[in-house]
């Protein structure tokens, strides 16, 4: 009995979000049947699921395009973020001048900035990459700078006593120390990148989930909008998982460092 209880507990702990989703879907399904909600207003989960399977061929190219765009934007955004963070860290004077402005830049909603970027750079890939970069780089900068700043003063002291140069201090101590913080930033950026990609596609593109969504919306294919939402979620989750696995591999042996 005891065993079975703990077994149940284990299952509940690991899969409780899945159970919650299933319950929500069941309620949704039941209420759309019971209240006979029109399909264009709120399609039942089964309708959405059917559309996802039936329309697979018609939207895969959108999916592939958005995936590529997100990955490309994420890589560029993260690189820019890392470079900015490293520059700000190594040049304290620049940090004082720039860091507050960086925070300010994040107060401008991306949706407001996007049309401007289209005016300046047209409908090509460039403005899209810029949008994703803008969304992705900030979490990385903040996390990385925090990681640098929280380097143990004892270790810095040891390294300096041992005669480490500024470069050695950075390569051997500060950067490896910041890695776990960088990964926290990366997880946020990765999920943001998909959002950034979809927003950028709304503004003008010929393919991508964003395009698929706008088309679906203008023809009141609400089921397709939900299909798009579903795939955005799956994509985010996928990116998140990849980064988590990467973290596990790269930072092995570190899990207990804070204990």
């Amino acid at each position: 009995m005891q065993n079975r209880l703990s077994f149940m507990k284990k299952i509940l702990r690991g899969y409780s979000p899945v159970i919650v989703i299933i319950v929500i879907l069941l309620i949704w399904q039941w209420s759309s049947l019971f209240f006979s909600i029109p399909k264009w207003l709120l399609p039942a989960p089964t309708d959405i699921f059917n559309e996802a399977i039936k329309g697979w061929d018609s939207y895969t190219h959108h999916l592939v395009s958005t995936t590529y765009l997100s990955i490309g934007g994420l890589v560029i955004g993260v690189s820019v973020g890392l470079i900015v963070a490293i520059i700000l860290h190594l040049l304290p004077l620049v940090r004082q001048a720039i860091y507050p402005l960086l925070i300010l830049s994040q107060n401008i909603p991306i949706i407001v900035l996007a049309p401007l970027l289209v005016i300046w750079f047209g409908f090509g890939v460039l403005p899209k990459i810029i949008i994703i970069t803008l969304v992705c780089f900030f979490p990385i900068v903040v996390a990385t700078l925090d990681g640098f700043r929280q380097t143990s003063p004892e270790l810095v002291h040891y390294m300096r006593m041992a005669g480490a140069t500024k470069g050695q201090l950075f390569v051997k101590l500060e950067f490896p120390h910041a890695l776990s913080a960088i990964f926290s930033g990366l997880k946020i950026s990765a999920t943001y990148s998909v959002m950034g990609a979809v927003i950028s596609e709304w503004l003008g593109a010929n393919k991508g989930i964003g395009v698929y969504m706008t088309l679906a919306q203008s023809s009141f294919r609400t089921d397709r909008v939900f299909v798009a939402i579903g795939f955005i979620m799956i994509l985010c989750l996928l990116f998140f998982t990849v980064i988590m696995l990467l973290e596990k591999v790269l930072l092995k042996g570190r899990r207990h460092t804070n204990e």
Binding site: E154, H157, Y158, M161, A162, G163, L173, H177, R254
Partner: peptide, 26 residues
């Protein structure tokens, strides 16, 4: 700096390095 070898009060080992990699740091 770096003329003497120094061991502080706390061991000050790099937590992400193995013992072997830690002892060669100096």
């Amino acid at each position: 700096r770096g003329a003497i070898s120094y061991t502080p009060q706390s061991p000050s080992l790099l937590p992400w390095r193995t013992i072997l990699k830690n002892v060669v740091l100096g």
